Computed example of a mutant assay.
Amino acid sequence: MCFGQQPCGFFPRRFLYAKFVSARRLQAEIGGEIVFFFHDADHDPRETQTILRHRKTGEPAQLNFGFVNKVQRKWSPLYLKRIADGWQANTARQLGAYVPAEWVERFRAVRATNVADFCLEMYRAMGLLEGVRVVRSSDPAVRRAACAVDDCFVDVPYAGEVVRARRIGGELKLHEGGDCYLTVPPIAYGPEQVTPTRDTRLRWMQSVIRCTHYIAGAGEQAYLRPEDAPEITFRQRDPIDRSDEAYVPGDPMISPRPVQP
């Protein structure tokens, strides 16, 4: 069984926690292996926004990584977005108002230079990855093993960085906002640089993982194409309130309270 998600905050959003819970419940029912498809090749910096609530006032605060430059922030894949110097120490000084002291120290202890690795190490520290196999979309071996997709992104060099350019009409383009795109100079590339778009992600992922069951989040259900993988049985993740906020173990104010169906 499998579920997928981009890195979604250094404390994961509650909907991701609900996917882990759903997967473990399904595993208890039917057995098998849990695979977490960690889509760290995505590039949108909004994916790692982390919403925490103040422990006294309950007011939400939106935090995110500091990135080393604008090109990386806008266009580099998450596994290549380097964390700005001083960000971890500065953020740790704020966290005491939002999370228990144990999790401030766990946050301080993470050793990672890019945002995807940092998120994954925090999820590991929280015990979420115990007994779970992680498959990363950034892994060149995964990319080489995956099926070819025409609707795709390609990791290519640009302005001294590696960026994730969309293949559109045979050209590689970077989205600048709205209907504006910047065209990247032509360059040869291979399958180890290619990752899927939202619409081709299921077929691409399944060609590597070959799962029997997939746990889909509320947003995924709007665009997943079951006909691309008719062999999969789809299950909805457990509902959870305040799904976009961060999950932090041990704090009654911000620990998940699943909504009864």
Rank of each mutant, 00 (worst) to 15 (best):
101 A>L: 14
78 L>E: 05
244 D>I: 03
139 D>C: 08
154 V>A: 04
261 P>T: 06
256 P>H: 12
258 P>H: 14
247 Y>S: 01
181 Y>R: 02
110 V>L: 13
227 E>S: 02
65 F>N: 07
33 E>K: 10
161 E>R: 04
60 P>L: 09
258 P>A: 11
86 G>P: 11
160 G>S: 15
236 Q>W: 14
52 L>E: 12
227 E>R: 03
176 E>V: 07
134 V>S: 08
47 E>P: 00
11 F>L: 06
242 R>L: 13
92 A>S: 10
109 A>N: 11
229 A>W: 09
191 P>F: 06
132 V>H: 09
97 A>Q: 09
202 L>R: 02
4 G>N: 08
197 T>G: 02
32 G>A: 03
167 R>E: 15
213 H>T: 03
68 V>N: 06
25 R>F: 09
175 H>M: 08
149 V>W: 02
63 L>S: 04
114 N>W: 00
245 E>M: 06
133 R>K: 14
142 V>Y: 02
2 C>V: 15
198 R>P: 06
163 V>N: 09
74 K>Q: 08
119 C>F: 01
106 R>S: 15
103 W>V: 03
111 R>P: 07
16 L>D: 06
155 D>L: 13
34 I>H: 01
200 T>R: 07
156 V>M: 04
243 S>Q: 09
47 E>H: 03
63 L>T: 06
138 S>D: 04
65 F>R: 06
2 C>D: 15
195 T>F: 05
230 P>I: 12
122 M>R: 04
15 F>H: 11
216 A>Q: 13
127 G>R: 09
243 S>V: 10
139 D>V: 12
8 C>K: 07
220 E>G: 01
255 S>L: 13
192 E>I: 01
251 D>H: 03
167 R>F: 11
256 P>E: 11
223 Y>M: 02
24 R>A: 03
77 P>T: 14
167 R>W: 13
173 K>F: 06
47 E>Q: 08
234 F>K: 02
220 E>D: 01
15 F>I: 13
194 V>I: 08
53 R>P: 02
251 D>V: 06
3 F>P: 04
212 T>L: 10
39 H>L: 12
251 D>F: 04
197 T>C: 01
191 P>Y: 04
195 T>Q: 05
18 A>G: 00
178 G>E: 10
124 R>H: 02
69 N>W: 05
62 Q>A: 01
172 L>R: 03
249 P>I: 12
72 Q>Y: 03
168 I>S: 03
47 E>S: 11
186 P>F: 13
205 M>D: 05
89 A>I: 11
162 V>W: 06
45 P>E: 15
113 T>L: 11
29 E>I: 09
118 F>K: 07
243 S>C: 07
54 H>D: 14
16 L>P: 02
